[in-house]
Write a protein that binds this DNA or RNA. Structure first.
Lengths: 339, 339
DNA sequence: ACGGCTTGGACCTGCCCGTAG
DNA sequence: CCTACGGGCAGGTCCAAGCCG
C-alpha cells in the first residue's frame, strides 16, 4: 500500500551543490538576512538547479506546524457547498495552504467516523465543516478534535446586515417583495430540515410573515431537490388561497414551476414563485425566476479567513465586507389577481 | 504562519502505557502476526485508552510512501467535476487515502503554477487532473511531476462500449434517437472547445451525422452555460431547415429551451432539443429534457481505481463494469412535423 | 545447548533549532 | 558570517538479544 515517493532532492543535496552546510540553506529558505551575497547566490542557484521543494512532511514533523486544512462535507454536488469549497480552495492556495477534502456519506454514520479518524491523523491546522445537520454536529462534538474547527451550514452562520444571517436577510427580502406586490397568503417549501441552512430559512420565513402581519400557513417540508418541489405540489398541500410560494432554493423552485405548468396553473398569473441562491440557471427557467443572490464563493473566502484568524492569530475578517444577499426580481413574481 | 499542531498521543506513549517498546506497537499497527496474545492485548488496550492515531507526516517521512492524492481542477461548480470529485473522495477514503483538492483559476496561468508548486511539496502518491483544457495540459506537461498522474476531462477518456469514449457513445445514442424519429437536419451547440469533453462530443456528433448520412450543419460553439445556449439561439444561427438541436449539456439546453419559448417556437413541436449529463433538474425542465445519463460519481471511482492500479500495482479496473451512458427519453424530442 | 519466537535498542527519514566555535 | 554538532519531531525497520522449551 502507498506509493513510493519520488526521490526528490533534499536540503542536503542543495547544500552540497552550493558548497555550504545544510543549515545555511535552511536559513536562506527561512528568509534570514545575514547571508553573504556570494553564498546567497550559490544557494539560490543550487536551489533552482535541483528544482528543490521542501519536504512538507518533514517540515511539519519538525516544526509541529501544518499548512493543511480539511473541509468536511457530505455533499459536493449541490451548488452551495461546491462553490463554497471552491472559494475556500482559492484563498487557501493563495495563503500557501492545501485543503483536504474529507467527504462522507450522509446516510452512513460509520463513514463520518472514518472521515474524522482520517482527519485526526493528518496534521491539520484547522477544519471547516460544511453542510452540517444536527445529527452530524452531534456526532462531531462527541469526538475530540484538537484543532480549530468551524461548523458551517451554507449561509446560515454568516453575519448578515444587522446581527442576522444571510439566510434570514434573504428570506426577508423575498417576503417583503411579495408583500409589497400585494400577496397575503404565502406558502413556504423548505429544504431538508436536517440542515441548518434550511432551518434558518424556515425560521426567517415565519418571522417575515409575522412582521408583515400576514396569515400563517404551515411550512411544506421538502429537501431542496427539484423532485421534492414537484412532489410538494403534487400532494396539493397548497391551500386554495395561496397566491405565492417561497421555495427554499432554486432547484426546488424548478420542480414547483413544472408542477404548476402541468396543473395548468399559470406563474406568475395565478401563483408567484420565488427561489433562493440564484444559481446561473435560474435566469433561464420558464418563467425566469425571482430569487435571492447568495455569493457562495466569497462565503468560502470568508470561512477560510475566519479560520486563519484563529490559526495564525490574524485579525478576524469583517463579515460586512462580504456580499450581502440581493433580491433578483425576474418574471416569476407579479401582483396577485386572486384565484 | 501555520498552526501549532495538537499534542496527540504518540506511539511512545502507547508503548509506555502497555509496558512494551515502541517497536512492538509499530508491529502491532503493521498487522504483524508474531506477537504474544498477552502483549497484543495490552497494546490494543493502550491504543484504545489513548485514542491513538498515527501521525501520517511522520509515517510518510519514514516510509517514503504517501497516502495522499491530489485532484487538480479549475472548476468545482459544474455538476460533472464536483460529482467526479465526490466519487474520488469516497473511494479514496475507503482505501485510506486523503484527497487534496488543488484548485486554480482557469483564467490565470500563474495560479496553475502555484497549484503545481504546492502539489510538488506535498508528498503525493499521485494526482488526478480534471477539467483539462489544451492550454492546461500544455502547462502541466512542461513541469516535472514525479508521481503517477492522470489527466482527465470529464467522461472523455473513459472507455465506452467498443473502444470509444462515454462522450462519443452518448452522442451516438442521441443522434440515432433523433434520426429514428425522422429528423434530418440536426444542429449541435457545443461546450467550450477548450475542453476535451466538449471536443469529444463535437467530434462524435459529426461522426454520428455522417453515419446516419444526414446533412451537415456547422457546429455552434457555446460554453456549456445556460446563457451560451440562450445566446446561440438569439444570434439565430440555426438554419431554417433544422428540426432538432443536440446540445452539449443540460444546462445549455435549458438556455435553448428558454430562447425557443421566447421566440414562440414550440418544443418539441417545431424543434426537438436534447441535453447531455442528465442532471437531476433536467426532468423538470419545460418540457422535460431528453438527454443522456452519465454517471459521474462512478467515473470518479473509476479514475481513483485506475490511479491506484499505477500506485500500488493492483490490477487496473475494468472500465466496462462502470455504468454506460444511457439515453433518457422525455418530452423534448418528437417526430419533426416540418416547419 | 540449540533453534524458533517475541521483543527491544539503535539508527534512519528530511528538516528545524540552539549552541559553540 | 558561517559551520559543525547535537537534539528533537513520530514512526519504520533491521539486527540482535532474550526467552522458551
Amino acid at each position: 500500500m502507498g506509493a513510493k515517493r519520488s526521490t526528490a532532492s533534499t536540503i542536503y543535496d542543495v547544500a552540497a551543490l552550493a558548497g555550504v552546510s545544510h543549515a545555511t540553506v535552511s536559513r536562506y529558505l527561512g528568509g534570514f538576512e545575514g547571508i553573504r551575497p556570494g553564498t546567497r547566490e550559490r544557494v539560490a542557484h543550487a536551489l533552482a538547479e535541483l528544482n528543490y521543494r521542501p519536504n512538507l512532511s518533514a517540515r511539519t514533523l519538525a516544526t509541529n506546524k501544518s499548512h493543511r486544512i480539511a473541509v468536511l462535507t457530505g455533499d459536493l454536488t449541490s451548488a452551495g457547498p461546491s462553490l463554497t469549497v471552491q472559494g475556500i480552495a482559492r484563498s487557501a492556495r493563495a495563503a500557501g495552504y492545501v485543503v483536504d477534502i474529507v467527504s462522507f456519506d450522509v446516510t452512513d454514520p460509520d463513514s463520518l467516523a472514518d472521515a474524522i479518524g482520517l482527519m485526526r491523523s493528518q496534521d491539520l491546522a484547522g477544519v471547516i465543516a460544511l453542510t452540517i445537520s444536527d445529527a452530524m454536529r452531534d456526532a462531531i462534538s462527541t469526538v475530540h478534535i484538537e484543532v480549530p474547527m468551524h461548523l458551517d451550514s451554507g449561509p446560515a452562520d454568516l453575519p448578515g446586515p444587522v446581527g442576522t444571517s444571510f439566510n434570514a436577510a434573504g428570506i426577508h427580502l423575498i417576503v417583503d417583495h411579495l408583500a409589497s406586490l400585494g400577496h397575503r397568503d404565502i406558502a413556504h417549501v423548505t429544504g431538508s430540515m436536517d440542515y441548518f441552512a434550511a432551518q434558518s430559512r424556515a425560521t426567517a420565513f415565519a418571522e417575515a410573515i409575522r412582521n408583515n402581519e400576514l396569515p400563517e400557513h404551515p411550512a411544506i417540508v421538502g429537501d431542496w431537490t427539484s423532485r421534492s418541489g414537484y412532489e410538494a405540489l403534487q400532494r396539493s398541500l397548497i391551500h386554495e388561497s395561496v397566491t405565492a410560494i417561497v421555495v427554499g432554493n432554486d432547484q426546488a423552485a424548478l420542480g414547483i414551476l413544472r408542477a404548476l405548468n402541468e396543473a395548468g396553473i399559470s406563474c406568475p398569473g395565478d401563483i408567484s414563485v420565488t427561489g433562493f441562491d440564484d444559481i446561473p440557471e435560474a435566469e433561464y427557467y420558464s418563467p425566469p425566476l425571482t430569487t435571492v443572490r447568495i455569493d457562495f464563493e466569497s462565503q468560502g473566502t470568508f470561512l477560510f479567513a475566519t479560520l486563519m484568524s484563529e490559526i495564525e492569530g490574524t485579525p478576524a475578517p469583517d463579515g460586512s465586507q462580504f456580499m450581502q444577499p440581493k433580491l433578483i426580481v425576474r418574471s416569476s413574481t407579479a401582483a396577485p389577481r386572486g384565484r
